[in-house]
């Protein structure tokens, strides 16, 4: 016999430790008495609460907790995927409109015209674009936009207005006057 089997047999001797024979009947009598006392002592609210917790005790196993956390994360991700950008507030829109207005004298006229858009413009990706105001009446905006596009964001008018500074060059850094002379020489050749 191995030592482990010997240990098992030794521990098995504890089967002989038993309460006396009257224990079971006394236990049952006490059980009934405790149940009656329990009902009388406890308030209806505590009994309801215990029934509630007992009922739900089996549901709160770790696997259910993981499932709940996973479901909550999925709902949160779906929510943020459908609403990617927060809407700009009214104050922010007004600030953008003011900063983008063409001249300081024109800005109040724009502000006075109570024209509000019926819907917020959106780009191709569904992202809402900020409202920057309406062009004043009589101003043709198309050439202005084209010039902005080809001049990297500045209109030609403004480029010429500051041509006395270092910005009086073409896009590759040659001054406007030199560029004109060199192109004329090339034509003569």
């Amino acid at each position: 016999m191995s030592d482990f089997e010997h240990i098992q047999n030794l521990i098995r001797l504890k089967r002989h430790e038993k309460p006396d024979d009257s224990f079971v009947e006394n236990f049952l009598t006490e059980f009934h008495q405790r149940q009656r006392e329990d009902v009388l002592k406890r308030s209806a609210r505590s009994l309801v609460w215990e029934r509630f917790t007992t009922y739900f005790s089996d549901f709160f196993s770790p696997k259910w907790a993981y499932a709940c956390v996973g479901a909550a994360a999925a709902i949160a991700l779906t929510f943020f995927a459908l609403n990617p950008a927060p809407k700009a507030s009214g104050d922010a829109r007004q600030a953008i409109a003011k900063s983008e207005s063409m001249t300081p004298t024109e800005a109040p006229q724009v502000a006075e015209a109570p024209k509000t858009p019926t819907s917020t413009p959106k780009d191709n990706f569904g992202v809402e674009l900020p409202f920057i105001g309406f062009a004043p009446e009589g101003v043709d905006i198309e050439p202005l936009l084209i010039s902005r596009h080809f001049a990297g964001g500045y209109g030609d008018e403004r480029m010429h207005a500051i041509s006395g500074s270092t910005l009086g060059t073409d896009l590759i850094g040659i001054p406007f006057d030199e560029a004109k002379e060199s192109s004329a020489a090339a034509e003569q050749h």
Binding site: L10, R12, L13, H16, E17, K18, P19
Partner: peptide, 18 residues
């Protein structure tokens, strides 16, 4: 606190061996 031990333990082979 120890429980009463069944008298049958005296005839248990393991108890005799011990």
């Amino acid at each position: 606190s120890l429980d009463d031990v069944d008298t049958g333990i005296e005839n248990d082979p393991e108890f005799i061996k011990v």
